[in-house]
Computed example of a mutant assay.
Amino acid sequence: MMETGMHTGQLLTLLIIALALGMDAFSLGIGIGLKGIRLRDIIKLSAIIALFHILMPLMGMVTGQYVSTLLGGVATHVAGILLLLLGGHMIYSSLRGEAVQSFDHRTVWGMLVFALSVSIDSFSVGISLGMFAADVLLTVLLFGFFGGLMSILGLMLGRRASSSLGEYGEACGGVILFTFGLLFLF
């Protein structure tokens, strides 16, 4: 019974973190969508983002598991600090009003740069989750699903929405990661 409760708690935590990381893809997707994007490009770009949201946390989790064995009990605090820094950076970036870099999102290079830019946070979170020995397969599948889904939603909404909405998505994701960082520390 206790194992089910812990598994449910872990699942809920992973869902919330996956949604928070997807917010970055959502907010930047709005910016790209505002430039005008074809449906075929939305599907290609979202698939690449989903793939990066699987690969980046996977690499981070492997790194985090290695770091965890080196650090022992300090790993929980280090993971909390990483999430605090990551969440704080996302909040700061959204408040500062960084614009989406101008590049051609239809080229392979443009799609890879965009996918990397919205997935790099997943690597850092993967390091933290690797220190906690989170379920690797579940984590990367959730991150990939929500990264792809949120990018589709952002790109589609960007075709119809004003540019001011994008900043709030990244800030919301940052607040969620920052909160989890605090919870891991205390």
Rank of each mutant, 00 (worst) to 15 (best):
I54N: 00
S164R: 10
G97L: 06
F132Q: 09
L28N: 00
R38P: 10
V140I: 14
V175T: 12
S128C: 10
R159W: 09
I43N: 12
F114H: 05
R106T: 14
G73K: 08
L85H: 05
S151Y: 01
A75L: 04
L34W: 09
D135M: 13
G22D: 02
L58G: 08
S164H: 08
S124I: 02
S94K: 00
S163Q: 14
L71N: 10
I127N: 02
L45I: 06
M131D: 08
L45D: 01
L70Q: 10
L142C: 11
G148M: 02
L153N: 07
T13W: 13
A75C: 07
S94L: 10
L157I: 00
M2C: 10
H105K: 12
L182N: 05
S163E: 15
M90A: 09
G97K: 03
M59Q: 13
L34G: 02
F178V: 11
L70C: 03
S27K: 11
S68D: 01
F132A: 10
V113I: 04
G73H: 04
A171I: 09
S46R: 06
L85K: 06
H77L: 12
F146S: 05
Q65P: 09
L15V: 07
V125P: 09
I91V: 02
D104H: 04
L165C: 11
R160H: 12
F143T: 07
M150E: 03
V140F: 03
C172T: 10
L137K: 14
F26H: 03
F184D: 08
M59T: 09
S128W: 07
D104V: 05
M1A: 15
F178A: 14
V74L: 15
I37H: 14
V140K: 01
L70T: 11
G88S: 13
A75I: 03
A47W: 03
R38D: 11
L11N: 06
G80Y: 02
G31Y: 07
I120Q: 04
S27M: 00
S68I: 03
V78Q: 05
L28G: 01
V175S: 13
D104K: 09
L82E: 11
D41R: 01
I91D: 03
S102T: 07
I91K: 00
M6E: 11
G31W: 04
T76P: 05
L185W: 03
R160V: 01
M59W: 14
I91Y: 01
I17S: 05
F180R: 00
